Simulated scan of single mutants.
Amino acid sequence: MKKPPIIWLTTLLLSLTFLGALVLVPWRGFTHGFDGIEWLAFVIFTYASGLSITAGYHRLWSHKSYKAQPVIRFLYALGGALALQNSALHWCSDHRVHHKHVDNNEKDPYSAKRGFWYSHIGWMLREYHASTYSDYNNVRDLQNDRIVMWQHKHYLALVIVMNIGLPALLGWLNGDILSMLLMAGLLRLVVVHHCTFFINSLAHIWGKQPYTDKNSARDSGFLALLTYGEGYHNFHHVFENDYRNGTKWWHYDPTKWLIKLMSLLHLTSDLRKVPQQRIEIARLKMQLSRAQDQVTQLPNCDEIIKKFQADYELMKNKLLEYYQAQKRVLEAKRKQLAVQNLQQHVQLLRKQFVEQQRHWTDLTAAYALKGAG
């Protein structure tokens, strides 16, 4: 089968910037050195461009997981041009296709089923999906956003201003244009490129699948460190409209923290969160599926699977009772009613659920050992 034509502009851009960062930055560092201002600019520009992709292109515009004031959307548009990953309109169009057809080699623009290289960078080097460069029917909502369309219309000029003009200006003010161009411009661009590209590649290859195995997306706390919190990708592909990727307080998700902080400053609003019981049920369902798979080789597997199913239903019901009781406590507080008895009931239900969960864990672990043996 004949390969699609090479997209030379993209291929040269990604190749030359990578080689430049690999050669020119160490050369400048050894022969001249970089000062604190240049390193600070590198860090600030790295987060500004990366978060514009994750908080702006991804969670705001692609998934509409929250709303943002025009000034924030404008900053995202500039940061997106700084990240040099195409206009928001085009990026979001590709991404929505990805979610709709995830892992479909013919339709998913960066299907991980075609390997790490393809999903990381290869999909951009040839005209595999040329039609997406003109078909924006799946982002008609974004075509009503003046800032998105302004950025799309002036994208090339914005790229030049943000990636060359702005670092050069800062370098002139700091007394060293070349060093600033190499740090805040070139090295920063390559780092952001490959860290965000990991979301399409490694986040579909490496990690755990606590919520679903129906697609290749995976959760990895380590990968979240490299991708501005996007490493909790298995969660995201199940609950794509949640403004969070990392749901626990200890999950590293600076994108989530930024969105939440801006909501406290009234710069963002309508932050969408999946009810916790839906998240827990998805996790339990995945545990049930894995437990059933582990005992299929045992002679009495049908009876064991029925027992798993019964225990799963009991645990799910306990979980729903607990969250419904929590909801009643919150409603009572809003109405300024006495909640002591309700809170005691919630604690009792929580204790019952934890005990049932412990029993479930012991049960599935015991049968998993038998299945493995």
Rank of each mutant, 00 (worst) to 15 (best):
V97D: 04
H98W: 04
H101F: 08
V102A: 05
V102T: 14
V102E: 02
N104S: 10
K107H: 06
S111Q: 04
K113G: 02
S119V: 00
I121C: 14
I121M: 08
G122I: 02
G122F: 01
G122V: 02
G122R: 01
L125F: 15
R126L: 05
E127A: 10
E127I: 01
E127L: 09
Y128K: 12
H129C: 05
T132C: 00
Y133Q: 13
Y133W: 09
Y133K: 08
S134D: 07
S134C: 11
S134I: 09
D135F: 06
Y136C: 03
N137S: 08
N137L: 04
N137W: 03
N138Y: 05
N138P: 02
N138D: 12
R140E: 13
R140P: 00
D141Y: 00
Q143C: 04
Q143P: 03
N144D: 07
D145Q: 04
R146E: 11
M149T: 13
Q151W: 09
K153V: 07
Y155G: 10
A157D: 07
L158G: 12
N163S: 15
I164L: 14
G165T: 12
P167E: 14
A168N: 13
L169M: 06
L169D: 03
G171P: 12
G171E: 10
G175F: 15
D176P: 06
D176C: 14
L178K: 12
M180T: 15
M180P: 03
M183E: 15
A184L: 15
A184C: 06
A184M: 07
G185P: 08
L186M: 12
L186R: 10
V190T: 09
V190Q: 14
V190Y: 11
V191S: 08
V191N: 13
V191H: 10
V191D: 03
H194C: 07
C195A: 14
I199T: 14
S201I: 05
S201E: 10
S201R: 08
H204W: 04
I205G: 01
G207Q: 05
Q209A: 08
Y211I: 11
